[in-house]
Amino acid sequence: MRGLRRYAPPLIWLLVLVLTAVYLSRLEPLFAWLEPDRQTVVYPRQSFVALLLQHAAIVAVAAALAIALGVGAAIGVTRRAGEEFLPLVSQLASIGQTFPPVAVLALSVPALGYGAEAVVVALVLYGLLPIVRNTLAGLQAVDRGVLESARGIGLSPWQTLLWVELPIAAPAIMGGIRTSVTINIATAAIGSTIGANTLGNPIISGIVNGNMAFTLQGAVLIGLMAVTVDSAFSRIA
């Protein structure tokens, strides 16, 4: 019961998001009132559910890769074998953060061409940075005394990492993942300008054709999606 209450806000947001995606096209009269001179007032090319799923899939794949690579890299450079790379990786993570996400997205096109793959690569590259930085900060903040006593009770380096270091660093790591995913939801929306199918499609199409109804539909759904994910993270982290 308490668990349910705890997770109620994200679940309610999720329900609102899904219902909106499914039934948005039923609100045609409302959009017709907004754009009285138009014949089509509901984005026609793909269903909102399909766009939502594709948007979520791009973000999820990118997040999974970024988490695996980012946490892995941060663990690697904090072990003795990877010490050599620690200053470079932490500097790269802080320099990379000044790169605007849009620029990373745009620069991935000359390298990879148009399409969802280029968007995923850009999202992984950019999403890595907050995860690496936060994981590094979390791992480096683990008290030396705690590590000593872990060794003292006979834990192997692997066991120390899994049972001591990662649990202590977990809140910081989750914070990094949250930042990463939030930025990626936004950047994936812009990804529709480089040929990926996301909820950005109706927005861009609406701007290009001067049809506010399309823009509004995409914007409401992306906003709901972002709020749902953020609300879920605020319960977990």
Binding site: T182, A189, G206, I207, T215, G218, A219, V220, I222, G223
Partner: peptide, 14 residues
Amino acid sequence: QTIPSLALFGLLLA
């Protein structure tokens, strides 16, 4: 801050 930029721009247009 959580609302994606493209969405917020879109929401302000109308």
